[in-house]
Design a binder for these strands. Structure first.
Length: 582
RNA sequence: GGCCUCGUAGCUCAGCCGGAUAGAGCAACCGCCUCCUAAGCGGUAGGUCGCAGGUUCGAAUCCUGCCGAGGCCGCCA
């Protein structure tokens, strides 16, 4: 797989080892911090290495001296056009145009696999996301988490991990009893009773159908029955229905989970006790009394003995309760058992995608996972900040379906899944996101979705027109094109961006940051639009020139390669590329 | 009181495991369509990277303290 940055990184390291073998550098140097990166200022070349500065002190040499020796050796490589020492000891490398051009046939041959990385080495990672309570439709906040988690899963897959997408169904707590009671009210309503929805029940319309379905199944059997008779039945039924709705919501967004894991199943199998017992043996679970929170003392605080998790041993500021006063578990206890289950399933890495309001929860969960996996499992928690909705610059709150909050469906109905997904990935996960229903549909440069799609559409248009003009645009024909005509700065710039794709994938995957893919695509599209417009000043730079078929083929090959990368990047974001704008 | 996330151009935001003169879009100003989609492109102007220390050859980036915004801190998950 062609990865120019990785190739040059390898080349620099090999050359340094040659210098060690030749006695020009001490044999025991640690090369770990020697990097090959694109310089911030393109005037400094295509790639730069800090080798001389990093090694100067341990080698006991002057940086520029090391850099000069290294430059001499590197200059012998045909791919490297120049190697210049600059500044405090940087070595700036400029690649020969042919090295960049070689990307085109490589990309065409690899197709959608260009940029795929072996970094994950087939290790198993579990990405848990959405995990909304099964008590109603998904709302905007869930939508962002869903898009983020799914794109992250795609990204890790592309980077060579074996990925499981998982949804944790919170069907064990008090909230599903509330759901059952709310469904019961709708059931009474379906049976012709007048009902009121007291505080603490769910009044949303989405339960009307559930009430009717319950009537269909049970008639009026439970209308005057006491709660014990119907609660369990109704809870099961309503939860099932809510999960169907949630699955459908996710499907509408293009998200497919591999595993739906039920919290309740943990209660039934005695798994919670088992997990806590293990922690107790480690001395991390004990019976104790908690200090009241400082500065914000609850009115009814009474010290009492309860089951606690010693998260302070992992840097948390206080130990965390596992049981409520009525003896039932807090949400934290089943969560520990759930994560233990994931550990036992053999994952090398776990990722939780949570709303930002769960921030206080991160440390204790990491503590539990570190303890239960004995530090073997890499565990990352990504907090997703909230989404602020606007319409034409005005805050927007109305929902057609749920009344009180905007649902995922509201968003998709309004702008479609592709726009929703792309826009939600144009911000870092931990930054709040403004989502304007009008702006995201705008066909202009300040709308990144449009801008990237437009580039792809232009490329598709070039291919269509070329074909109509009788030029063979099969990948085989394009891959064999003589690319030496590609020597305009705009063409070389586009090649450089294409060359940066594998590196972008690896960085994004390492940091668990799919937004980097969206920003990369914007830059790539920008380089393409710039080249496109160069054709206005200089007609020889237009992609198609009927009088110059070989040259056209070279330029079209470059466009095609760009299209492959855009399409592949959009694939990670879960967005379908368009072939024409409407 | 403590913990978490954040603070970068007038606005919205990038900034790779520390790297050389801090970037993009919008808004402002000046240009580019007899030409594959101008739904686009080029240029000018605009920043004490919240503040103060520290580590380092080198800090927007790492560490400490402070200021500011949001979130969380036993029986909601």
């Amino acid at each position: 797989m062609m990865n120019l940055f990785a190739d040059m990184h390898r080349k620099v390291h090999e050359t340094l080892r040659e210098m060690q073998a030749a006695g020009e550098l001490p044999a025991d140097l640690d090369l770990k911090n020697v990097a090959v990166e694109p310089p911030r200022d393109p005037a400094h070349g295509d790639m730069a290495t800090n080798a001389a500065m990093v090694l100067a002190r341990p080698a006991g040499r002057r940086p520029r001296e090391i850099a000069e020796r290294l430059a001499e050796r590197l200059a012998a490589d045909g791919r490297i056009a120049s190697a210049e020492v600059a500044g405090p000891g940087f070595l700036n490398l400029r690649l020969a145009p042919d090295a960049w051009r070689a990307l085109v046939p490589a990309v065409l041959a690899a197709g959608p696999d260009y940029g795929r990385s072996g970094m994950g080495a087939g290790r198993k990672v579990n990405v848990e996301f959405v995990s909304a309570n099964p008590t109603g439709p998904l709302h905007v906040g869930h939508t962002r988490g869903a898009v983020f988690g799914d794109a992250l899963a795609n990204l890790l897959d592309f980077a060579g991990w074996q990925v499981t997408r998982e949804y944790y169904i919170n069907d064990g707590g008090a909230q599903v009893d509330v759901l059952a009671r709310s469904a019961y009210l709708r059931y009474l309503e379906a049976n012709g009773r007048e009902v009121a929805f007291p505080e603490g029940t769910y009044p949303g319309d989405y339960l009307v159908a559930v009430g009717e379905a319950l009537k269909e199944r049970y008639g009026d059997r439970f209308v005057d029955a006491p709660e014990e008779e119907w609660l369990d039945l109704f809870r099961r039924f309503a939860t099932e229905r809510m999960m169907e709705m949630i699955r459908a919501d996710l499907a509408a967004l293009g998200v497919r989970m591999d595993v739906y894991f039920s919290e309740r199943s943990l209660y039934e199998g005695g798994r919670i006790e088992e997990t806590l017992e293990k922690l107790r043996e480690m001395g991390l679970v004990y019976e104790g009394v908690l200090e009241p929170p400082k500065g914000r003392k609850p009115e009814d605080w009474e010290p009492r003995v309860q089951t606690l998790f010693r998260s302070t041993a992992f840097g948390d500021d206080v130990d965390r309760p596992l049981k409520k006063s009525d003896g039932s578990w807090t949400y934290f206890a089943p969560d520990i058992a759930y994560h233990y289950d994931k550990i036992l399933r053999g994952y090398d890495a776990l990722i939780d995608v949570l709303g930002a309001d769960h921030g206080g929860y991160v440390r204790r969960m990491k503590a539990a996972v570190a303890a239960l996996s004995e530090g073997r499992v890499d565990f990352d928690i990504k907090l997703v900040q909230l989404v602020r909705l606007f319409k034409g610059g005005q805050p927007f709150k109305m929902s057609k379906r749920a009344g009180t909050f905007i649902t995922l469906r509201d968003v998709i109905d309004e702008v479609g899944p592709d726009v929703t997904r792309f826009v939600m990935l144009t911000r870092k996960n931990d930054a709040p996101l403004d989502f304007d229903f009008e702006k995201v549909l705008e066909q202009s440069k300040d709308n990144p979705v449009f801008y990237v799609q437009y580039a792809h559409a232009r490329i598709s248009s070039v291919l269509r027109k070329a074909e109509a003009a009788g030029i063979d645009v099969s990948d085989a024909a394009l891959g064999a094109a003589d690319l030496s005509v590609l020597d305009d700065p705009a063409q070389l710039e586009l090649l450089r961006r294409i060359g940066a794709w594998p590196r972008t994938v690896e960085l994004a995957a390492t940091h668990h940051e799919p937004h980097r893919i969206a920003f990369y695509l914007y830059d790539l599209a920008s380089a393409f639009h710039a080249l496109w417009n160069r054709g206005n000043d200089d007609p020889t730079l237009r992609f198609i020139d009927a009088d110059d078929v070989p040259g056209s083929r070279a330029r079209i090959a470059l466009a095609r390669a760009t299209g492959v990368v855009i399409s592949s990047g959009l694939g990670i974001l879960g967005v379908k590329p368009v072939t024409e704008m409407r």
